[in-house]
Amino acid sequence: NQASVVANQLIPINTALTLAMMRSEVVTPVGIPAEDIPRLVSMQVNRAVPLGTTLMPDMVKGYA
Rank of each mutant, 00 (worst) to 15 (best):
N1T: 15
N1L: 14
N1S: 15
N1C: 13
N1F: 15
N1R: 02
N1W: 07
Q2F: 09
Q2E: 15
Q2Y: 11
Q2T: 09
A3K: 05
A3T: 10
A3L: 10
S4V: 02
S4C: 04
S4H: 02
S4W: 02
S4Q: 02
S4M: 03
S4A: 04
S4T: 14
V5I: 07
V5Y: 00
V5Q: 01
V5H: 00
V6W: 00
V6F: 02
V6P: 00
V6Q: 05
V6I: 12
V6L: 09
A7M: 04
A7F: 01
N8Q: 08
N8D: 08
N8V: 11
Q9C: 03
Q9V: 09
Q9N: 09
Q9T: 15
Q9W: 13
Q9H: 11
L10F: 10
L10H: 10
L10R: 05
I11S: 00
I11G: 01
I11E: 01
P12I: 09
P12Y: 11
P12K: 14
P12A: 08
P12V: 11
I13T: 14
I13F: 13
I13G: 10
I13R: 06
I13E: 14
I13C: 05
I13Q: 05
N14W: 08
N14A: 06
N14S: 05
N14T: 06
N14F: 14
T15F: 07
T15L: 05
T15I: 07
T15R: 05
T15E: 11
T15A: 10
A16D: 15
A16Q: 14
A16N: 12
L17E: 02
L17R: 00
L17H: 00
L17F: 03
L17W: 00
L17K: 00
L17S: 00
L17Q: 01
T18Q: 15
T18Y: 06
T18P: 01
T18D: 13
T18V: 11
T18F: 04
T18R: 08
L19H: 14
L19D: 12
A20F: 13
A20N: 12
A20T: 10
M21R: 03
M21P: 01
M21V: 08
M21T: 05
M21G: 03
M22R: 00
M22L: 11
M22V: 12
M22N: 00
M22S: 01
M22D: 02
R23V: 11
R23D: 08
R23Y: 07
R23C: 07
R23E: 06
S24H: 15
S24K: 05
S24C: 03
S24M: 05
E25G: 05
E25W: 03
E25C: 04
E25F: 04
V26G: 07
V26I: 12
V26N: 10
V26R: 02
V26H: 05
V26T: 06
V27Y: 02
V27W: 02
V27L: 06
V27R: 06
V27K: 12
V27H: 03
T28L: 04
T28Y: 08
T28G: 05
T28W: 03
P29D: 12
P29S: 08
P29H: 14
P29N: 11
P29Y: 06
V30P: 06
V30L: 10
V30F: 12
V30W: 05
V30E: 15
V30Y: 09
G31P: 01
G31M: 02
G31E: 01
G31S: 02
G31R: 02
I32Y: 02
I32P: 00
I32G: 01
I32D: 00
I32S: 01
P33Q: 11
P33R: 07
P33I: 13
P33L: 07
P33A: 09
P33E: 05
P33H: 12
P33Y: 13
A34P: 05
A34Q: 06
A34D: 14
A34K: 04
A34V: 12
A34E: 14
A34M: 09
A34S: 11
E35G: 08
E35Q: 07
E35H: 07
E35D: 09
D36Y: 08
D36M: 07
D36I: 05
D36E: 14
D36A: 05
D36T: 13
I37Y: 02
I37M: 14
I37Q: 10
I37H: 03
I37E: 03
P38S: 11
P38Y: 06
P38A: 07
P38C: 10
P38G: 15
P38K: 11
P38I: 08
R39N: 07
R39P: 02
R39K: 15
L40W: 02
L40E: 01
L40T: 02
L40V: 09
L40H: 00
L40M: 05
V41L: 13
V41I: 11
V41C: 04
V41F: 08
S42V: 04
S42G: 15
S42E: 07
S42Q: 13
M43F: 10
M43G: 03
M43W: 07
Q44Y: 10
Q44P: 09
Q44T: 13
Q44K: 08
V45F: 00
V45A: 04
V45Y: 00
V45P: 03
N46F: 10
N46I: 15
N46D: 12
N46M: 10
N46W: 07
N46E: 08
R47Y: 14
R47F: 14
R47M: 14
R47E: 13
A48P: 07
A48Y: 12
V49A: 06
V49P: 01
V49C: 03
V49F: 02
V49M: 04
V49D: 01
P50G: 04
P50Q: 15
P50R: 06
P50F: 13
L51R: 07
L51V: 09
L51M: 13
G52H: 11
G52M: 09
T53W: 13
T53K: 05
T53H: 13
T53Q: 10
T53R: 06
T54Y: 02
T54A: 05
T54L: 07
T54I: 13
L55A: 01
L55T: 00
L55M: 08
M56G: 09
M56R: 09
M56F: 11
P57Q: 11
P57S: 12
P57I: 06
D58E: 12
D58I: 11
D58Y: 06
D58P: 07
D58W: 08
D58G: 08
M59S: 07
M59W: 10
M59V: 07
M59N: 04
V60Q: 00
V60T: 02
V60K: 00
V60I: 11
V60G: 01
K61L: 11
K61S: 11
K61A: 13
G62D: 11
G62M: 09
G62E: 14
G62K: 07
G62N: 11
Y63F: 15
Y63Q: 07
Y63C: 04
Y63M: 06
Y63T: 04
Y63L: 10
A64G: 13
A64F: 03
A64P: 12
